[in-house]
Simulated assay, not measured.
Amino acid sequence: MKPYQQIKISESGEPLVAIPLERFAVESPHPYVKLGADYGGVNPYYLRLGVVKALVTAQNYLEQLSPGGKILIFDAYRPVAVQQFMVDYTFAQVLQERGLRKENLSEPESQAIWQEVYQLWAIPSLDPAMPPPHATGAAVDVTLVDEEGKIVEMGSEIDELSPRSQPLFYAQDSSSEGKKYHANRELLHQVMLKAGFQRHLGEWWHFSLGDQMWAWLHEQANPGDNFVARYGRVAESG
C-alpha cells in the first residue's frame, strides 16, 4: 500500500466527459494504443467533469504566460486492464534492456525489478479502496508544446524509468540545459497548480484533482487537515 491509498473515498458520482481536444495538443494514435493496449472501446481522452473544467482553466493560464502554447494530453482515463498491460509491458522492457530472461530470474531478482516498475506504475488493483489513480478519471499525464506545435523539452520522456522523472531532478542543475528543463517543468506545474491540480511527487508529468493522491498531497501541505477523495474507480462495463 502506498501512503495515499489510506485516504478515504467519498464517491461524488460525477461522470466521465470527453476532453475538448480542440483546446489542447494530443498524440494520435494514443501512445499506449500504439503499444498494443486494448481500451475495450473506451475513449482514453475522458476525465471527470470537474477535472476537465480544471484542465481548461490550466490551458487558459498557460495562454497568458506562454501565448500560443498548449498543454499536450498524453494520457487521461485508463481502465485497470490497461494499467495491467502497461505494468507488464514495462517489466518486459526492463528485462529486454538488461538482456535478461524472466525464466532465468531468481525470486529476489524478479521482486527487485517489480519494485522498480511499481515506483513508476500504480498497482492495477480492483480493490475499490485502492484504485489506480488513472482509473478514477481524476489523473492526467501532460506536457507542453510551444507556439509552433513542438514538444517542449523537459529533460526526460514521459514514463521514463529513471531518476530524471523526479519533478525536481534539475532544480540544482547549473547547466543551461538543466535550467531550461527545470523552468519548463515549473511552468507546467505552475499552470496546473493554479487550476487546482496536485503534482505526483515522483513524476513531473502526472497531475491529479480529486483522487486519493490529490487529497494526500493536500494533507502533506496542510498537516492536521483531513482531506477526502471525491473520485474512486470508474465502474467498467463488461
Rank of each mutant, 00 (worst) to 15 (best):
G137Q: 04
P31M: 02
A92M: 02
Y170R: 08
V142C: 13
V234T: 08
F85I: 00
A229V: 00
S66R: 03
A25S: 09
P20K: 10
L62H: 09
H189V: 05
V145G: 13
S237T: 09
L193H: 05
Q59S: 05
A235Y: 03
T57K: 15
H189W: 13
V82K: 06
E22Q: 09
A229M: 00
A183H: 12
W214R: 02
E116L: 05
A139E: 13
N43I: 04
Y231M: 13
I9Y: 02
N184E: 04
V80K: 04
E109Y: 07
L55K: 01
D141K: 02
A54M: 04
R233V: 13
Q93T: 01
E14Q: 06
F24I: 05
T57R: 13
A112I: 01
G232Y: 04
S156M: 14
Y4C: 15
V51Q: 01
F169G: 11
Y4N: 04
P167G: 03
Q96P: 09
A183Y: 15
L188Y: 08
F74C: 10
P67K: 07
Y32T: 08
V51I: 01
T136E: 11
E148V: 07
K194P: 15
A229D: 02
A58L: 07
D38H: 01
S176R: 12
E203D: 03
Q93I: 02
S165G: 15
P44I: 12
A135M: 07
I7E: 08
E11W: 00
F85H: 02
V117R: 05
D173A: 01
A195E: 09
D38E: 06
N222W: 00
H30R: 13
I158D: 10
T136C: 03
M130C: 15
N222M: 07
R185E: 08
F24K: 04
A138D: 00
A129V: 14
K102H: 15
E157C: 14
M154C: 11
E109H: 10
V142H: 07
I71P: 04
E236D: 14
D225N: 10
R78I: 07
D211C: 03
E11Y: 04
Y170C: 12
E97V: 03
Q84V: 06
R48I: 00
H30G: 09
R199V: 06
G238R: 14
R48V: 06
G210S: 06
P20T: 09
G178D: 09
L35K: 14
R164L: 15
I7V: 07
A139T: 07
L49V: 01
M154K: 12
S156A: 14
T57F: 04
V117G: 05
E236Q: 14
S110W: 13
H189G: 12
T90P: 00
S174I: 11
L161M: 15
L120D: 12
I73V: 08
E103W: 07
E160S: 10
P128H: 03
A215L: 05
Q198K: 08
L47M: 09
S12L: 13
H189T: 15
H189A: 11
T90R: 01
W216E: 00
Q220R: 14
P132H: 06
R230Y: 13
T57W: 05
L49A: 10
Q59Y: 01
S165F: 05
T143K: 10
P44N: 07
K34Q: 12
Q166M: 12
R23L: 09
V117L: 13
D38F: 05
Y89N: 01
L126Q: 15
I123V: 13
G149Q: 00
